[in-house]
């Protein structure tokens, strides 16, 4: 099937999947309690609660409420985020940008470390370096984030004072415009190198925390597929041709070994993008994960729904991209089968 045809088909299914997901989640958010829990306080009388419910159309039947929400979405109105005291459409882009920036930085850490370690270990299968690399990568996945993050903070923030928490130094943040919401990009656009350095400086600890956690699975996948590839006939053929081992490994085997790894990278990136609750909370990172956790705990339905909409579109999109990258890496992959 042609890539274009395949794309069109996938893009047509996408809205149906999003609608399905949103209906399920819309219903589920009601199981946990009132969607206006955030507005309620014990001083309120029944009439006052009813007044607030009417303000948010909660006195209508559930399907009608869903239609209100869906209608709003079509008009570009995602509702009022109670926890952020602002329209979702106004607050969410900042959250997405914060999570995106962190995800990219963490992704760089994870891919660099993961692919590097995986290749290193795969080429030295069952030798000491392989074991060391494995211990290093697995420990990233097995250490609880809250623990690892706090340890990083104690060492690098409290004792050494090298790296801060938060997203930026306030004064530098307010000194530049923020057209994209990605502080590193904004700083570069403003030509302010200090602000750029500051943004990177703030990224280090959370990116390492988040990226290290995603390293293990990438490294494992890279290693095992590289080991497999190295046993293939074409590798022997390449060696027989007299190619240097380095060239055999990097030009031939690794390229093929990357194919399954890319799937894992794509999915990991998806997870990184939707925000990490623990990392964002501990490092004071104002991203999607922390926002969502707040919304769930305080019962803010508009925010929860916006988040679900975002993540479902995100995952469907990431999967699509991964499929297309497959086809690019391996021409034998036929899309749509």
């Amino acid at each position: 099937m042609q890539v274009r045809e395949y794309l069109i088909r996938r893009l047509m299914i996408l809205p149906l999947l999003v609608i399905g997901t949103s209906i399920i989640v819309f219903t589920l958010t009601r199981v946990g309690g009132s969607p206006i829990g955030i507005y309620l306080s014990h001083e309120m009388s029944q009439e006052e609660v009813a007044e607030i419910e009417a303000r948010y159309h909660l006195d209508d039947p559930l399907p009608v409420q869903y239609l209100y929400w869906a209608g709003g979405v079509l008009r570009g109105d995602l509702g009022w985020s109670g926890i952020s005291a602002g329209p979702v459409t106004q607050v969410m882009p900042d959250k997405i940008a914060a999570s995106l920036e962190l995800a990219v930085a963490a992704g760089i850490v994870a891919v660099t470390l993961g692919v590097g370690l995986g290749t290193f270990a795969g080429a030295r299968r069952n030798r000491l370096p392989d074991h060391i690399a494995r211990i290093f990568s697995i420990s990233g996945a097995s250490m609880p984030t809250f623990w690892f993050a706090i340890i990083l903070l104690i060492v690098f923030w409290v004792y050494l004072g090298w790296f801060p928490v938060g997203r930026s130094t306030t004064a530098l943040f307010t000194s530049i415009e923020h057209p994209t919401g990605l502080y590193t990009v904004d700083a570069l656009l403003a030509g302010n190198l200090r602000a750029f350095g500051d943004a990177l400086w703030h990224l280090v600890l959370p990116a390492v925390t988040l990226g290290y956690g995603a390293t293990a699975i990438i490294a494992r996948m890279m290693r095992s597929s590289l080991v497999e590839e190295l046993q293939e006939d074409y590798v022997d053929a390449a060696r027989a041709k007299g190619l240097a081992e380095r060239v055999v490994l990097k030009r031939h085997a690794r390229r093929n070994a990357l194919i399954p790894t890319v799937t894992v990278i794509g999915l990991s990136f998806g997870f990184l993008l939707q925000g990490s609750v623990v990392t964002e909370i501990i490092f004071q990172w104002p991203g999607m994960g922390r926002w969502m956790a707040d919304a769930v705990l305080r019962g803010d339905q508009a925010t929860i729904m916006a988040y679900v909409l975002f993540t479902s579109v995100l995952f469907l999109g990431v999967n699509l991209v991964v499929d297309i990258v497959y086809a690019y890496l391996d021409r034998r992959v036929v899309l749509g089968d």
């Binding site: 409290v158 050494l160 004072g161 130094t169 306030t170 004064a171 307010t174 000194s175």
Partner: peptide
Amino acid sequence: DAPATTEAAGESEGESDPTTGGEA
């Protein structure tokens, strides 16, 4: 490059002298 808006506030955020060690 010091920002004009908040009177260069925050110049030394998070700083403790790394050479002294111990808690800031």
